[in-house]
Design a protein around this nucleic acid. Structure first.
Lengths: 237, 237, 237, 237
DNA sequence: GATGAATGAGGCTTCATTCAT
DNA sequence: GATGAATGAAGCCTCATTCAT
């Protein structure tokens, strides 16, 4: 789990590789603790203990506790930015890419459920300038989604909608799996949640041309996990 | 602004009316401060000062600081539960009620944007038993939405979908206006946001029968603000 | 021991009389500890313990540890400003007043020897703005001395010299009793030190007219403690 | 700038020349930092950085941080002991030597103003045994002054006074230029300060015989900078 | 000899909570 | 019922010192 280099967070230690390693170590411990206990209930000592180092050492690599939070949040956002492209690798069909992106987003969120909640809880605990870094990173990963959307619109598969707004709807859909997991897990499995969501979004966005393409995709796959199961109501006729 | 009585929060003061008044006073101050500075950065002294009372007094009405948070969060959720029925009052058409509910939800969230964010930030700061109260309250206000959804499905206006899951999508859509306001406000106005959302959801949910009813509603109103503007792509054929 | 009110040091507590009392209490403990162990080696806990209060209480009356130092130093300078006028009360003869002022200064320094050293050690530990308060206070007490000097010059008893420079020589002479006490106490008693100093300064400053007046003063007193013993070398002529 | 060898401060390094060089290097950095920020605010890391070495290296040449302070203070006192004899070199007239010593002292102090203040601030931060070394060194440099004084007394140029006490007055006079420089620099230049002081001290100490010698000295020099300008009131008679 | 990463004790400061008035 | 001064536990952060390389 590589922590992204935040050039804004300066370290006393010069060895760049060591900085990377140590920060990843601290962030791993911090994300876990912040996620389960919250930022304010987690002490630097807790993090140090869990990371197996002394508390003083952390301060060789960050300026203050808030820096640890910043790095932690960036690492979460980073995992989004890393996983989505991975899921799209090799896929060329716009519609398939779009569905795969959403599917991937939901699955990363599921894997880092607690961390996703952390981002919602704690971003406002950052100072304005650090929060700005988070916002930038968020916009970057949103861009991965909205690019897929735009591609589908350009190809006439999706209606012309405000891609940025819809992106937020998609992103929020993924996040909600984490944010409301306490309830959603009683209502469906992750696969069902994704399937239901994809169906919902396609229903809302596909053009007639899009629908044709969509049905073709469904047929051509035996393991329709990415695109989701066949919609219960195959068409709005 | 009346704070809901949380019977679980006990007070040393016996005069019930006074308890109500005092708590409302504290909670008003607390919500404002928690919203702007966060729960942990806000001190009991801050709240007392803003409420114009002594810090000791607060402890006559709550057990501890977390109780103040609980009351604050409940008061936010309460405003949802109060506003939605108000918006539905007098409306009988299922589709109209559904749209009105969503519209109302978005508008309460807009009015209490910071407080909505607070709920996401701070619910996990509560102990499990207190958090349960929040969850119950959340489910209750969700029920207001899902009832509308079910009604539309029962009447054949909406496809048969998992109402609870879709409810979360609708609720989250409203919350997102607050959670991502820093970005959304650059992309659209509140009215546009609602209109776009309603269009999106109707697109995803309406049956052919529902579409006919929907168009009728649109025509019958000069100020179609609640139901939103006509969809750009009037039909999914 | 009344602490001077430093309006720059603000307190959380509103009761002015209480603020006075508490600060005096803390400052008394602090001066003693700072004097013996130094500012940095003294902890707030030390001061609280010696003052018989909790450490938190101190922070209701000062902003930070440096504030305690500021109040402590001001209290020392204040004792100078209080004692010199007291020693001059009732005296009218310019020469007598001048000698009495020096004598008094030396005796306050002797009584608060450690505190005087503290002022030299720790003034630079203050931030620039707080140090400015100390400088102002120092100039005020210097003024008490230089006024006496000027009076003597105006009356033709002292040569025309730069009163401010000579004042520093006098003031430093007094302070030196504290600063170099480790050595001076082996060389002379306080009385001898004062006598020797007065002789030295008069020798350096008296005009012939001043000399006549000086001798008259000597004769007219049986207990020549203030003006010091007769100079060993009664005249330079 | 050679640091005096303090045999009490032991080093892990055996090469004596290297020890000398390294210590001088550390002390140069330390004096500067201690002077500007104070002893406690200066870290070993600061010193190492300024000296261009690693922090660990310092501990090969001193036992602890206090040792660095000791060496620093000794180096300051040393510069006094080095400069005064240099100023006296070649001078034989007792009065001239005395004035030259004072003049030199004031000028060293002026050159190392911050360091002089440091000595006053930080000597008490040393442990008793280390402080004793400082006191010894101080007495040694005082001896350079008092020897001049005694010589003048022996030759009948100065009145018979307690040479040690007067020495402290002279030494303090020089130090005051540093200690109160914030104010004195507004009142006079260094040259004026010295001139005024010399005039003051001669006025206080010269015998009639001394006066004759003093005037002769004044006349015999075109650049009377050392002895100072002619006194305004050339005689007390 | 030199480096600098690592340790961990210690101090300032905050703040929830209590309680005498 | 209300006040607000007082308590003291707890946490962030610093920095002298060590030690493996």
């Amino acid at each position: 789990m590589v922590t992204n280099v935040a050039p804004e967070v300066t370290s006393q230690v010069t060895d760049e590789a060591l900085v990377q390693r140590r920060r990843a170590q601290f962030v791993a411990a911090a994300v876990e603790l912040f996620s389960s206990q919250g930022y304010y209930r987690t002490t630097i000592q807790d993090i140090a203990r869990k990371a197996g180092v002394s508390s003083g050492l952390i301060y060789q690599y960050v300026r203050d506790k808030e820096d640890v939070l910043l790095l932690s949040l960036l690492s979460v956002l980073d995992s989004y930015k890393r996983e989505i492209p991975r899921a799209l690798a090799g896929l060329t069909d716009p519609l398939e890419r779009c569905c795969a992106a959403i599917d991937a987003y939901c699955r990363v969120v599921d894997q880092r459920r607690e961390a996703t909640v952390l981002a919602y809880r704690s971003t406002k605990s950052l100072s304005a300038d650090r929060r700005a870094l988070i916002k930038t990173s968020e916009l970057e990963s949103n861009e991965l989604i909205s690019a897929c959307l735009r591609d589908c619109m350009d190809k006439g598969l999706f209606r012309e909608v405000n891609a940025d707004l819809v992106t937020y709807q998609l992103v929020t859909f993924a996040h909600t799996w984490a944010l409301k997991h306490w309830r959603l897990k009683e209502l469906s499995t992750l696969d069902e949640y994704i399937a239901q969501g994809l169906e919902f979004f396609t229903q809302a966005l596909l053009t007639p041309k899009g629908w044709r393409q969509y049905r073709k995709l469904q047929e051509s796959r035996e393991a329709p996990s990415v695109v989701g199961s066949k919609p219960e109501h195959p068409a709005a006729e």
